[in-house]
């Protein structure tokens, strides 16, 4: 698949993945753009059966890079329209969502990345290990610690109980 076709067909999914990872629309654009620029340089050499994994790994590398922990090296080029728009949930639901995201945002990046790959991308631990350059056991440790940290928090425990009681 040509680079242009790949970006046109997979761009939305990549941006969704980056947005779930970093929880910021502008940073998501930045992560995806930078990852794609790096992939573009070696597009012909990437095994095309593994394009998604390769690009996802490039996005993860950008996300986990210490140089980008606080601010982006280069802002995204151009303003992309936001597809999601304002949420239509009630104020209470927005409050619960914000609580969830505040807690997720407080997780160490690797723990958060593991949870996103496992629960958003539905990847098995072995594949997550390949993307993060670590062992499957390390993935399980990150996941267990991240989940434990979320569960311990009263705000999210309350939110889970609401879901359970519904």
């Amino acid at each position: 698949m040509e680079f242009d076709d790949y970006v046109l067909t997979r761009g939305d999914a990549l941006l969704r993945f980056a947005h779930v990872l970093c929880n910021d629309a502008q940073r998501a654009e930045d992560l995806v753009q930078e990852a794609l620029v790096r992939c573009h340089r070696r597009w012909r050499r990437i095994e095309h059966g593994g394009l998604d994994a390769y690009v996802r790994k490039a996005i993860l590398r950008q996300y986990l890079s210490w140089r980008r922990r606080r601010s982006a090296e280069e802002g995204p080029a151009g303003d992309l329209p936001c597809a999601g728009g304002a949420p239509d949930q009630g104020i209470e639901a927005i409050g619960e969502r914000d609580a969830m995201w505040r807690l997720l945002a407080g997780l160490p990046r690797r723990q958060r990345a593991v949870l996103v790959l496992r629960y958003y991308e539905d990847l098995p631990d072995a594949e997550i290990a390949g993307l993060l350059n670590c062992s499957a056991a390390t993935v399980r440790v990150h996941a267990a610690r991240g989940l434990a940290r979320l569960r311990r928090h009263p705000e999210l425990t309350g939110r889970a109980e609401v879901v359970e009681d519904a």
Binding site: V7, L14, L15, A18, L36, V37, L80, G84, Y119, A160
Partner: peptide, 29 residues
Amino acid sequence: FEAALREAFERRGREAPAAAGLLEAVLAR
């Protein structure tokens, strides 16, 4: 709990920026 987590991720994914203009932005960069 895990379902709530998935739901939260899915919802966040739906609020992601659209890819319109992404290719042009990447090539310009």
